[in-house]
């Protein structure tokens, strides 16, 4: 990047505000959503469950995929155990039925957890768009603090309501510690 700092030289990704506390960020995110912005994101050093509500995020696809994974894993585990014991290698163990349900529950349970856990992790990573080698927010020098102590909110230029001067003014009205422009 060149050292030009005027607005119209580099393509702009968005405007970013920096907050000192989680509470301020959640309040700011709520106001941003209420002001009609939709393409914005919050960056925090710790997970904040309140943000889902403040930003009105309702993407529950990970839960759905996990449930599907759990059902497939459970039925797969049970089918595998039944197939081995009744079809592939039938063994009479102490006169119990070949499909001895209680004995198959641990396998069924473990397969449920395994596949559900893997589905949850993989679908979370993929829905987050990871791996992502480049993200513009890192162009702001102070953004490194997002993994330590500071809380950031970035309104993107893609937002239909985005207007450079008005957005800067709006973010400044939220009492941030600093407002910065993010190069694309």
């Amino acid at each position: 990047m060149s050292s030009h700092s005027t607005l119209d030289v580099h393509p702009l990704y968005g405007i970013m505000a920096e907050f000192a506390t989680a509470g301020e960020l959640v309040a700011a995110a709520r106001k941003t959503h209420e002001a009609g912005f939709r393409k914005f994101d919050a960056y925090t050093p710790v997970p904040l469950h309140e943000l889902d509500d403040a930003m009105d995020l309702h993407d529950n696809r990970v839960s759905l995929f996990t449930l599907i994974g759990a059902i497939l894993g459970g039925s797969g585990g049970f089918t595998l155990a039944s197939w081995i014991s009744a079809k592939a290698l039938p063994l009479n163990i102490g006169g119990r039925p070949l499909i001895s349900i209680p004995m198959f529950i641990p396998v069924t349970f473990e397969c449920t957890i395994l596949i559900a856990g893997l589905t949850a992790a993989i679908s979370m990573i993929m829905l987050n768009g990871l791996p992502l080698p480049y993200h513009p927010v890192f162009n702001v020098e102070r953004f490194g603090a997002a993994s330590k102590s500071k809380f950031f909110l970035c309104i993107e230029t893609d937002d239909p309501k985005f207007d450079h001067a008005a957005t800067v003014k709006f973010l400044e009205s939220l009492n941030p510690e600093e407002v910065a422009e993010v190069a694309r």
Binding site: G94, R96, S100, P102, M103, I105, P106
Partner: peptide, 8 residues
């Protein structure tokens, strides 16, 4: 149940 079922 599992332990008692296994032991029988």
């Amino acid at each position: 149940l599992l332990i008692i079922w296994s032991g029988n």
